[in-house]
Design a protein around this nucleic acid. Sequence first.
DNA 1: CAGTATCCGATGCGATACTG
DNA 2: CAGTATCGCATCGGATACTG
Lengths: 240, 240
Amino acid sequence: METRGGYAQFCPVAMAAEVLCTRWTPLLVRELIAGSTRFNDLRRGVPRMSPALLSKRLRELEQAGIVERFDGSGSGVQEYRLTSAGLDLRGIVEGLGNWGQRWVETQLSLKNLDPSLLMWDMRRNLDTTPLPSRRCTIQFLYPELPAARQNWWLLIEPSHGDEPMRETDLCSSDPGFEVDLYVESDLRTMTAIWMGFTTVANELRTDQLRITGQPRLRESMQRWLGLSPFAKGKGPPRSS
Amino acid sequence: METRGGYAQFCPVAMAAEVLCTRWTPLLVRELIAGSTRFNDLRRGVPRMSPALLSKRLRELEQAGIVERFDGSGSGVQEYRLTSAGLDLRGIVEGLGNWGQRWVETQLSLKNLDPSLLMWDMRRNLDTTPLPSRRCTIQFLYPELPAARQNWWLLIEPSHGDEPMRETDLCSSDPGFEVDLYVESDLRTMTAIWMGFTTVANELRTDQLRITGQPRLRESMQRWLGLSPFAKGKGPPRSS
DNA sequence: CAGTATCCGATGCGATACTG
DNA sequence: CAGTATCGCATCGGATACTG
């Protein structure tokens, strides 16, 4: 007798749940929807998932017709892209996120802090329009964390001509550029801002957040720092 | 080290997936949304789920603030009702169902036939308005099935005054009333009709479906038999 | 970098039986 | 009817190491 097989129900909810509702899968799909295409980029979005399992899930999604794999630009680099069926999952993942944001205790969310995840998410949703067009380097500090996770650098490359999309990089070791802005807070505060539970202004006021550096960058932080795609009444997870 | 705990991510998708994406849970929620409130009614919607697990899931959902349990009408009968947070899951479950209907191979759906589930679902979605206001008894026959699952009776109680909602019952043993309509087909055909993959008229034409009894009931079958809630958006948008 | 191979423990969950 | 108790196994998946 098969244990733990499918649901053996013709109901479409069952068919969908069978592929989608296994461990890590919704988060992986979220990461794909958000625009990551390469193995190690995906890993950054689901840091505690083992590579073996990630690989397995990707194969499952491929087989389910949700993901397509192909060689990215020749050099043997694999890329994973959502198929139409996969893209069509966006509404469901958004639904999950919105539901979570609405109904799960804020306190509970803020029990699961993770700087790498936060920074990776922030990097993806940066709004570079308020930024000067030269290269910007913004350093984040979380003094309460162990040394290896205290410092993060967000690099926004110079804008080329009228290309609107600027390259951004996230580093956890000093890239060596002069820093334009320092942002310091505890991880919980920064995460709460990101989630839309509070604001930059608010936390500056109570000194939970300290910013030093170029006034222009400082003033516009609430704008260039995006918000989580699920922060109150916000739109879909932005892709790239 | 904890194995298989939560995701430890602050992302709301993770928070939601943690409660919702465990085995059987989406189907259980579907059943609750569909209106079942009592333990054994819920069981009929998820027949292959063990009572122990059902009980466990209900407790989990209760703890997650999705379900509320209380005494139904005094007699110690427990009822399970969705809270506001639970009702708010409707969009997600519908999303899953619509996605499944659109993207999972029809053939695959029709591999998982289950007469009790089909009949239970049909009973719930009957449209009684085309039916005469006296009691109606409709018998379904699936000749290819083992004896115990061949025969099903749908009882639609007489309508009282202008009460629009009529009591309906599903029996798998002869209730003894005179039968107004016999419907005979293989289970696959009936399921396909229910899912919106084909129509009553179509299957009558090819003799996959045989109906005998009162002409009025026979003619209106496509109407009084509802359709699966997911039948609307059917058909994968072919990769045209 | 992009994964695969192997190992193995915990546990999810299926089956069955039992209680008020 | 409405569940709870118990058992046991398979499998899920975490950790680690290894390969092209």
